[in-house]
Amino acid sequence: MGVKTYKAIKATAQLAGIVAMVHAMNLGMDPGTAGTIIGAILLGPEYLEAKLVGSEDGTNDPN
């Protein structure tokens, strides 16, 4: 899979998640809960990827 395909799939999944949470808020979901879930959808994959790949200097030291 190419980088462009990966980024397109990731962006589409994130957009679908945001649309689902906005729809859930319209149906009565607590905005704080929806915001937390949207944050996890948007930032979760990037955080996980950064932890798996390591930092930019080539180390994976969390300190």
Rank of each mutant, 00 (worst) to 15 (best):
V3P: 05
K4C: 09
K4F: 12
T5Q: 07
Y6T: 10
Y6K: 07
Y6S: 08
K7D: 12
K7S: 12
A8Y: 15
A8E: 04
A8I: 05
A8L: 11
K10V: 10
A11H: 14
A11R: 13
T12N: 15
A13E: 12
A13W: 07
A13C: 08
A13L: 13
A13F: 07
Q14D: 12
L15H: 14
L15M: 13
A16P: 11
G17N: 09
G17S: 09
I18L: 07
V19K: 09
M21C: 13
M21V: 05
V22H: 14
V22I: 14
H23P: 01
A24P: 04
A24V: 01
M25P: 02
N26P: 04
L27S: 06
L27H: 14
G28D: 03
G28L: 01
G28Y: 03
M29L: 04
M29C: 01
M29H: 02
D30S: 03
D30Q: 02
G32W: 00
G32K: 00
T33S: 00
A34Y: 11
G35E: 01
G35I: 00
G35W: 00
T36M: 01
I37M: 06
I38S: 01
A40Y: 08
A40I: 08
I41T: 09
I41L: 10
L42Q: 15
L42G: 05
L43A: 09
L43K: 05
L43W: 07
L43Q: 06
G44C: 02
P45S: 09
P45Q: 05
P45E: 11
E46C: 04
Y47F: 08
Y47K: 10
Y47C: 03
L48Y: 10
E49D: 13
A50W: 06
K51F: 09
L52A: 06
G54M: 01
E56L: 11
E56T: 10
E56Q: 05
E56D: 13
D57W: 08
D57H: 05
G58P: 02
T59M: 01
N60A: 05
D61E: 11
P62K: 00
P62E: 02
N63Q: 07
